[in-house]
Structure formats: C-alpha cells, structure tokens
C-alpha cells in the first residue's frame, strides 16, 4: 500500500521535473508535434496521398498523423526514460534515492506514471492540433478507438520497460543522449514514421519488423487511416494480432533486462 502511495508521489514529482526540463520538453514532448507541422507545411503542395490513382485520397498531414502518434509513444517511453535514468545514474540521483527507504517498485511506478501522464498530454495535444489547426478528420467509430486504447496502453508500457532496459547501455550520464537518440531516430526512419512504410525496400521493412515501433505505427494507421489504405500494408492486412504478439515479446524482453540490470548504483565500479 505504502509502495503504491509513494509511487503516486513519485509520479507527481517526475511529471513536474519533466516539464521543467527544457530539453525533454522539446526533444520528447513537442518533437512529434513539430515534425507533424513541418511535414504538413512542406508537402501541402504535393497533393493528397491516394491508394490508387484517381481515387479520393487524404492530406499528407492526415497520412503521417498515426506515425507521429506512434513516435510519441516511443519517445515518451524509450528515449525519455533511457536518457533520464542513465543521467540519474551518472549524476548521483539514484545513489541518493538508494540510501533512502524508497522502494525501487515505487521509483518505477513513478517513471511509468510519468511516461503515461506526459504521453497522454502529448497525444491530446497532437490530436487537438491535428483536428483544429491542420483540419485532419479523426475517426468516429468506437471500435477504432478501442483498438487505439489497447495499442496506446500496451505500447506505452512496453516502451517504458524498454527505456528502463536501454538505460543500462550508456557508460555515463553524459553519453546517454548520444547513445539513445540515434537508436530511436533510426527506428523512426525505418518504421514508417517519417517515410512511407510501403515504399521502403523489403530488407528495410524486414529489419523494422523486428522492432516494436513499426507495429505501433501500423496499429495507429489502422485507427486513423481510411479502410481502403489497408491495401498498402503487408499482406493487405493491419495484422492487429501480430502487433499484440510483437509488443508482448518486447514487453517480456524489456521487463527481464530491467530486472537483471537495474541497480541504484553501479556496483563496485
């Protein structure tokens, strides 16, 4: 009980700290929104995206919205936590916490709570801007929103665990950004966030399919794009079952690595 209460207290603390860190606000919180704005502005003249020539299409902004939503999940979880925790290891935050009666469980509730809270605020902001300023129509079918909710929640939890796991990789707090950001950036390019997935070469699609972002982006396309866009997907299917399977595997991988590697301090370094 006490662990949960402290987890709530940690969540509030972490959320406040998140919004007071300008680099996090820019590179994690606002990044997908800024990219969506740039894409919409840059490609507005090149016409709508269509499934087949002659058919009615959707705007570039509308096409890239699901990718940005998926990227937001990845950034809020993996990039944010991996950099944040590696930095906390390096600057003594974790050592200090490790000397207090704070349970690591409460600490992680705080981290995941922060990712959830900031991820949801980020999502709402993206959707509001998309709808009100970029004129992108949002789905009205409750079934689609149900799909949205499970992919979002599953994606955020998995991304958080992968962020915690990845935080073990940087050798120092200073190198955290240099180690983590390229990994996350490359994933965004090969997973259909910034480039149309159906136009990527097969080998690149195959690599991307190993990682969770490609599947989250695909799931979000199933929510936000018109039904006929399914013909642009591999095997003409949204593959919702596979999304669950891949996210499930990465969830277990992230949890296992986090459990094995996490220490309040680097032991006997």
């Amino acid at each position: 009980m006490r662990m949960l209460a402290l987890g709530g207290s940690r969540t509030r603390y972490e959320v406040v700290a998140y919004f007071r860190s300008l680099d996090t606000v820019f590179f994690t919180f606002l990044f997908p929104l800024i990219m969506l704005g740039i894409f919409t502005a840059a490609f507005s003249a090149s016409g709508d995206i269509v499934v087949k020539p002659g058919q009615p299409g959707i705007s570039v902004g509308a096409y890239y919205l699901p990718g940005m939503v998926a990227a937001g999940i990845l950034l809020s979880g993996v990039q944010n936590l991996a950099v944040d925790i590696a930095r906390e290891k390096g600057d003594g935050t974790l050592k200090r916490l490790g000397g207090t009666p704070l349970s690591p469980v409460s600490y992680f509730i705080g981290k995941i709570g922060q990712v959830f809270t900031t991820g949801i605020i980020q999502l709402v902001l993206i959707l509001v801007v998309a709808r009100l300023f970029l004129g992108i129509a949002l789905p009205t079918d409750p079934g689609r929103w149900l799909t949205f909710v499970w992919i979002f929640v599953f994606g955020i939890v998995t991304s958080s665990l992968l962020g915690i796991a990845l935080s073990a990789l940087p050798r120092s707090g200073r190198s955290a950004t240099a180690v983590v950001v390229p990994i996350v950036l490359i994933l965004q390019f090969i997973s259909g966030v910034y480039l149309r997935f159906d136009q990527l070469p097969g080998w690149m699609q195959a690599i991307a399919s190993v990682f969770p972002l490609k599947w989250m982006a695909q799931g979000m396309r199933s929510v936000f794009l018109p039904s006929d866009f399914v013909t642009l997907e591999p095997n003409d299917s949204w593959q919702l079952g596979w999304i669950a399977v891949v996210l499930g595997i990465w969830f277990i991988v992230g949890l296992a690595i986090s459990r094995v590697t996490f220490r309040w301090i680097r032991k006997d370094s």
Binding site: Y13, V16, D91, G92, K95, G99, T100, S103
Partner: peptide, 20 residues
C-alpha cells in the same frame, strides 16, 4: 527499507540537475 529508514546519508557532493 525499514533499516534504511533509520539512516541519514549525506554523500559526497552530487550533480543533480536541480529543477525542484
């Protein structure tokens, strides 16, 4: 954790970002 609750630890100086 009960044991840690009875200790106070002032480490050598740390470099936390200090946004609080």
């Amino acid at each position: 954790l009960d044991w840690k609750a009875q200790l106070g630890i002032v480490l050598q100086s740390t470099g936390e970002p200090g946004v609080m």
